[in-house]
Design a protein around this nucleic acid. Structure first.
Lengths: 206, 206
DNA sequence: ACCTGAACACCGTTCAAGT
DNA sequence: ACCTGAACACCGTTCAAGT
């Protein structure tokens, strides 16, 4: 009767739930204790302090990214498909990924994806340090792009007068460009364009 | 005599100093008041609350990025040179830039750089929405790359057993690749490689 | 071994009161 | 118009005490 015994895993589970829903900033020790139905201080016995709780959570999340399968006919397309899948996954778990990222564990998290990329890059005829750089460049690009996207989402409402910085002759004689830059970017299309360009550039260089 | 009158600008100045040195998390209202030699509550009269103080600080920093000059002979090289300069600037002011980024003001901050990029992309013969996408892809890439770099710096000491995930046959028959991926990335070289590839890819596409 | 409440040193913020 | 101290509702963390 009463609550089931409090375990380290139970603490991590409900902590993960809170972070997934409201972000790491919303995870307080007292709130977590309330959710668990225990005293705050019990948590400390099981997981140390808040910092190591978040560390453990990040480890867990980093380990949770499963296999990623490439799709497409050419190596370039297959690499791009991995990048797209990776981006999808990151966007689907924004809070948890942010936590992993802040703790510098992103690289470990991406190990399965990197193995898939290695395979494709080999198929494209690259080997050794050269191939490694390509794999890394692609993962950096994906993570970076998603981070920038997410920052844009968080952006406050546009400040008055900002969009038309591009209208007022800043882009001299190219009104179509001015209009395009005055509009918010379409992250989906932008990502597609840039990974394709990046991968093409990486795979075709001497 | 005594302290010079407390002004909104004085508050922002010393707040900027604290953030620049120790990061936004280290900026407390009480600590700021102590630094200013006033009561905590005086700050509230001048800048509202902590959140709007950080907003104002971000605005300020975003406006502070000056002109960026391109260098090099071909348009591609000139675009790359802008990207390199941008990265330099971001790495030189990590805390302030993080603040701007978290508030989604990065795009505004990069307006001068984007204007330089527009010029070069025009020189490369691209116009309109196509040119706009190239400009955006490059800025996204730069910001994203720097964000990933900075996360890697923050990374804790490597966990035991992690580096050799690549040694133990994960990268089948390419030991040079395995060695390269087991080593930490060289961000300088990686950035150079990836912007060049990206810009090449973007400028040569039909 | 596990859980607890009390206590400490911090936060940001409000408010009534001063000049 | 500007500055103040007291007070409130929060934090994370430690510790002695319970079972």
């Amino acid at each position: 009767m009463g609550r089931p015994a409090l375990t380290r895993d139970a603490v991590l589970d409900t902590a993960a739930g809170l972070v997934k829903e409201h972000g790491p900033a919303a995870l307080t020790m007292r709130g977590l204790a309330a959710e668990l139905g225990t005293a705050v201080t019990s948590i400390y016995w099981h997981v140390g302090n808040r910092e190591s709780l978040l560390d453990a959570l990040a480890e867990r999340t980093a380990a949770g990214l499963g296999e990623i399968r490439a799709a497409g006919r050419t190596p370039a397309r297959r690499v791009v498909s991995v990048a797209l899948a990776l981006r999808r996954h990151l966007l689907d778990h924004p809070h948890l990924v942010a936590m992993v990222h802040e703790r510098g564990l992103t690289e470990r998290m991406f190990l399965p994806a990197q193995q898939a990329l290695v395979h494709e890059v080999h198929a494209a005829g690259l080997r050794g340090a050269r191939a490694a750089s390509v794999v890394r460049a692609v993962t950096f690009h994906v993570v970076g792009h998603v981070l920038v996207e997410r920052a844009r989402e968080r952006a406050p409402l546009r400040h008055p007068g900002e969009p038309d910085l591009w209208d007022t002759g800043a882009a001299d004689d190219d009104p179509a460009l001015a209009r395009a830059l005055a509009r918010p970017a379409d992250p989906e299309r932008l990502f597609d364009l840039s990974v394709r360009a990046l991968v093409d550039g990486l795979l075709t260089r001497g």
